[in-house]
Design a protein around this nucleic acid. Structure first.
Lengths: 117, 117
DNA sequence: TAAATGTATAAGCAATGGCTTATTGGTTGT
DNA sequence: ACAACCAATAAGCCATTGCTTATACATTTA
């Protein structure tokens, strides 16, 4: 049976913990085994495994077993609900306020510290 | 002094509660007074005020006072850190995995939660 | 087989979060 | 002035969360 997409609050909640978000960001850059992740954070292995379980439960990461190692990587598609949600607002917010496509089109190197008000 | 943008985990956390996310979504569609929000949810006025305080603390909403009423509305710019974060991934994820622009270009009818006009 | 290794799960604990009722402060209307 | 009203804050309660240590399970290695 096809698994349903996690509810948006659950997705946001999964990303709402600093350690867990950092883990996700590492896994977005490249696959890591659990023990590799343990080496990179100040928490114990069970804590890492629990964070991975939380990320897995909202389908933000996938896992692959090889021998006694478990390799995790981010699932970019897992962010689709967030993207859809932003697109949703795109439809009824004044374009000038947040033009998602324009933002996404921008080169990432331009003014990372642009003023906000 | 210029206020700094909230850290991403804090932003995600603010959106990670179902009631608070629903409040934000209402405020994204149109301005509401606190008492109007109270009428739309099953929680008490203090609970609503606390959620609004949480959203305000990460700059996702702004407030305007008029007489004894306080009117809140969403701040689309408050979502910019989320958009920037997604764009960030755009730069090092294989395009086929999550082409944000493509997703944003898709017709909204395949989105089960498309906005009512 | 036994020991070591990698990971997941169990159990418990302190901190946090979201709610409630009670109260306060500020504004409007009589 | 007083009462009614709107919203924010205080204080307390209970559920959840993120961590820990202890343990279980599977795999590899000696």
């Amino acid at each position: 049976m096809l698994m349903s997409s996690p509810h948006r609050p659950a997705l946001f909640r999964a990303l709402g913990d600093p350690t867990r978000l950092a883990i996700f960001e590492l896994l977005a850059r490249q696959e890591h085994s659990v023990s590799e992740l343990v080496d990179k954070f100040e928490v114990t292995q069970p804590a890492i495994s629990q964070h991975l379980g939380a990320l897995r439960s909202v389908r933000l990461v996938s896992t692959r077993r090889s021998g006694r190692h478990a390799y995790y990587r981010a699932r970019p598609e897992g962010l689709k609900p967030v993207i859809d949600w932003l697109r949703h607002y795109q439809n009824f917010w004044p374009e000038k306020l947040v033009n998602l496509k324009a933002v996404l089109d921008k080169s990432s190197k331009e003014n990372p510290h642009a003023p906000r008000h």
